[in-house]
């Protein structure tokens, strides 16, 4: 299969069956690299499994990450108009 069709199929499979949009797939020889963000480690494995099931001939390199959920360490001060002063960050807590 042409790479372009393969990548389109991966993208549609993940979005339309799994609700995962915005995952980047790129092919390097027989390896398919998956990159992007998902909201849990479960989803990270699930995405890999879906792709592996659909394309058993490919090796999957799973580079998906799960964004952190820590408390904000700083806030952004919005004063004046953006064209003028601009924004500064400062730690309030």
């Amino acid at each position: 299969m042409k790479d372009e069709y393969l990548l389109a199929q991966v993208q549609r499979l993940l979005a339309e069956d799994g609700g995962e949009l915005g995952i980047d797939a790129l092919r390097r020889d027989d390896t398919l690299v998956l990159r992007g963000e998902v909201e849990s480690a479960d989803r990270c494995r699930e995405v890999e499994r879906r792709v592996a099931d659909a394309f058993p001939e490919l090796t999957i390199l799973n580079e998906l990450t799960v964004p952190r959920v820590h408390k904000p360490q700083e806030s952004e001060e919005l004063t004046g108009r953006p064209a003028a002063a601009g924004a500064t960050s400062e730690d309030r807590h």
Binding site: G22, G36, E37, E39, P67, R68, V69, H70, K71, P72, Q73, E74, S75, E76, E77, L78, R92
Partner: peptide, 13 residues
């Protein structure tokens, strides 16, 4: 969330 990479952001107006 994938952009801010924390539970939430805070803006002080």
């Amino acid at each position: 969330h994938p952009v801010i990479r924390q539970a939430y952001s805070v803006f002080v107006i």
